[in-house]
Each structure stands twice: as C-alpha cells, then as structure tokens.
Design a protein around this nucleic acid. Structure first.
Length: 435
RNA sequence: UCCGGGCUGGGGUAGUGGUAUCCUUUGGCCUUGUGGUGGCCAAGACGUGGGUUCAAUUCCCGCGCCCGGACCCA
C-alpha cells in the first residue's frame, strides 16, 4: 500500500458528487453576473512569486528546477497569474474584465483543519474599474453564492473594512508609525492577549494614549463613520470613508447589505489590498477561521508591469466553505444517484442495451450488468447505487414482448410493452405504465 | 519549526506479557425472476525499528504517519 502525500486528498465518488454540486453553484452564480471562465497553468516561473513576495516565499512553495533548467513553482494562488494575463493583453481586452476560475493550488504548509497542501478555490475578479459598484458586485456574487448553497444571513457574516481608513488614521498620529506593522497587529487583535496586542502596537510606534484612542476609533459603528473623518482631518481618510459608504450603498441596492458588518479590525494579512477588504465568517463561530476573503487591490497590476489597473475580487476556498456548509447542514448529501438500472436475465443483452441506450439519449444516468451477475445480485447492486427505477429485461417477459419496470423505493412494479419502452416518454416511470 | 492527542482487518471497536472480540464491509453461494430484513462460506488487522523478556500487539525508547493547535496564511 502506498500512502497519500501529506496534505493531499482523495475524493471518492459520493463526496466528489457533493463537491461538484457546490462548485457548480458558485460558478453558476458568477456566470450569471457575466464573469467568464478562464483556464490557467499549474506551473509558473518561481520568479513570479519571489519578485512579488520575496525569496523567502520559495520555502512555502512547491518549487523546483525543470529539465530545461527553469526555476518553476506549482501555483500557490491565482492573482499573479491573472495579473500576468491582464498585462499581456491589456490593450485588447474590453473593460471591465470579469473572470472566474476554479482550480487547485499548492502550498507547502502545515496541515490543519480546513487547510491542506492542495486546495481548491474559485477566484472571482473584476479588473479595470474602481467604481464602488464593482466592489459591491463582488460582495453580491459572494453573498448570492452562499445563499444559493442554502446558507442564510444567520449563518455567515461579511466583515467589511477599508485599508485606507486604518492606514489613514494611523498616519494622522503625530508620531512616526509603522503602518504595516500596526495593521498586522490589528489583524491579530482578537487572537492575542491584550498585553501582547499593546506591545505589538507599541513596537509599531504608538504611545499608550494613542493605542487607547485608536481602539475607540476601531469600534466606530457603520452609521458613525463620519466621526473618523473629523478625527483624522485628512483627505485620505475622508476619501476612504466616502468610498466605504459608497460601496455599502451599492451593496444595499444589490440586496446584500444585510450580510455586511463594518468591522475596521478586519485587515486581512495580505499586503496588496488597497481599499475595501472583507472576510466571510461563520456567524456561530463554530468554524473558527475565516471562510474566505476578498478586497480591492488597485496597485497590483501596475506592479506586474502593466498600466495602472484597478481590481477587486474574492476567492472562496472549498475546504473552509465545506466546513461552513456542513456546520449549517446544507452540504449536499454524499450519495450516488442513478436514474435507471437495466437488469438482464438470461441472454437479453441486445434488448437491454437498446433500452439503456435510448434512456441515455434522454439524458439519464443508466447502468446495466457488466459482471454476469445473478438476478438477486443485480438487484442488490442496483440498490447500492441508489437506482430509482429498475428495468427488468428477462427472457420470460420477452416471450410476451414485455419488460418489467420496478420502482426501487416503493417496490411497485408494472409490465410495459417492449416495443413501446421507453417510447415517447422523456422519463418513463412505473406510474406512467400503470393503468 | 514548535506544542498536545492518537495509531488493532477497508471502516468502527473489544482486549491481552502466550498473535485477538464484536459490528460493519467486500466477494461467493442459498434455483440467474425480485433488493434494501435471513442463512452459509470466504477475505481481511495489532504503523515501524530497536530494547527488556523464555515469549511483546501489550512494557520502554527512537522513527513514521494521522488528528488537533501555535506560527504563517501571498
């Protein structure tokens, strides 16, 4: 026996069916908003990541030299790839560019609940517009996808913040503040002890009094955001607050405002976010980590050598999303489903095959015996694959030019003329041949 | 990298210093014409290396793997 590679997973048929349903739901919602599917490579130049995030990032990648001497890496995320794609055809692509893609990614990380070394996510991004409606559309796609999955506002919460509000407030203090360090500290605030948080903020250059002041500011509710403008007195904060308010107003028009809570402590760890950021959390807190996140990253495309191109997106990962769905009881049932099993008794393969073929032409999932099994064993098998209807093609029935239809759940059965089966019916059932 | 917990047939378990219980599963059979309830037969396990011992699945040590968590999360 060989073991699986740590952090990689097998999905057997029943579970895969459930995953497929969930992924298709998310993609259908994105597609409904006009996001178009793109396909991307599993390997990129390792430099794509090292240049953006530093050489240390290579330690967390599946990176190696290929036979041609190229330093390559299995893609740990999609953003650099789509940035590269946008830059490559910047002139010819009509704006806004709206793309989605569901794919595996790979990171050499420590495996924990909801986190693996190979993981699937759907990236949904808009490039080429900084209009608040684009930010709100991303929130709308995310919320619609979750509600389509059967989740409700009682199940999840989008904590919405704005990078420039935090940065602007920090920048408005008289002292010299390491903004990036302070934002990282804020992101950790709920996870660490109060003293530790204070120490981190102090390291970032804030005085005790400033830390207290800042805490009060962070608690500002959505309806009082104006007070932040007054406090800072800078254009930067005024613009940021105005932008956040515009996004929330658009979200209201799109019918998803109710899922959003302003939470200025939500900072996300990602350095490249520039504007609105949000993270989806389990409202009950049973899924302890963030389910997924998203936000605006207006500088990234330029950083990859393109024209300045604003961008906003989100990326649900299916490891955490399935945890949320399971917690909420909306994860699809993990069971096979089969429309018809065509059972053969004796030398009836030709007729059975014809019937199976015609049922398949009507779009059904149809199985028939390929093991030479006995009648009882075939019924057993049909039961094990959850066949709804069994079509018994037996020598006895055929002598009367008939087949028998059996509905597995109720056990009811009826005979039907073999020449008229499946006939004109799209979905022939026991009921349709009764009486 | 660090900190916990755990490894007994495919899955779930019981138990023991003298190689193992039960449930389930898988395959076959019980007339190749009635399954999801029965009966019979079969398959299938003590993670790994070393130590102690007459004897180790059991006790001790290392390693491996699994599950959590910390760090990290582009």
């Amino acid at each position: 026996m060989y073991d699986r590679i740590k952090g990689f997973r097998d999905f057997y048929a029943a579970e895969m069916g459930a995953r497929r349903q969930v992924i298709e739901t998310v993609e259908r919602v994105a597609g409904g908003y006009g996001f178009r599917e793109i396909g991307t490579p599993a390997l990129e130049s390792a430099r794509l990541y090292a240049d953006k995030s530093g050489e240390a990032i290579l330690e967390e990648l599946y990176a190696f030299e290929d036979r041609g001497g190229r330093e390559v890496a299995l893609t740990p995320e999609l953003t650099p790839t789509v940035a590269r794609m946008v830059v490559a055809r910047q002139q010819e692509l009509s704006k806004p560019i709206k793309w989605y893609s569901t794919r595996p990614f790979w990171r050499y990380e420590q495996v924990q609940q909801g986190r693996f070394r190979e993981f699937y996510q759907t990236n949904v991004d808009i490039f080429g517009t900084d209009d608040p409606a684009a930010d709100a559309e991303i929130l709308a796609v995310a919320a619609d996808a979750l509600t389509e999955l059967g989740l409700t506002g009682a199940d999840f919460d989008f904590r919405v913040s704005h990078r420039d509000i935090l940065g602007g407030l920090l920048g408005s203090f008289d002292t010299d503040v390491d903004t990036a360090a302070a934002i990282r500290a804020v992101d950790k605030r709920e996870k660490v002890a109060p003293e530790e948080y204070a120490a981190l903020m102090a390291d970032a250059g804030l005085t005790d009094a400033q830390i207290d002041t800042f805490d009060d500011l962070l608690a500002t509710p959505a309806e009082d955001l104006e007070t932040l403008i007054e406090f800072a007195g800078t254009d930067r904060v005024e613009t940021a607050v105005g932008n956040l308010q515009d996004v929330l107003a658009a979200a209201a028009d799109f019918g998803v405002r109710e899922y959003c809570t302003v939470s200025l402590t939500t900072a996300r760890g990602l350095d490249y976010y520039t504007g609105v950021v949000f993270e989806c959390f389990d409202s009950t807190g049973q899924v302890s980590r963030s389910v997924f996140g998203g936000g605006r990253y207006d500088d990234l495309i330029e950083g990859f050598g393109g024209q300045p191109t604003p961008a906003v997106g989100f990326a649900p990962g299916y490891a955490t999303l399935s945890l949320l769905c399971q917690r909420a009881g909306v994860w699809p049932e993990e069971a096979l489903s089969t429309d018809y099993y065509v059972l053969q008794v004796g030398q009836t393969r030709a007729v059975a095959a014809r019937i199976a073929r015609e049922l398949r032409e009507r779009g059904h999932v149809v199985e028939s015996d390929v093991s030479g099994r006995s009648f009882g064993a075939q019924l057993d098998y049909a039961d094990s694959i959850n066949a709804e209807t069994v079509v018994i093609v037996g020598e006895q029935d055929l002598e009367n030019d008939e087949v028998t239809l059996k509905e597995m759940e109720s056990g009811e059965q009826v005979t039907a003329p073999v020449d008229e089966f499946p006939g004109d019916y799209q979905r022939p059932t026991v009921e349709k041949f009764t009486g």
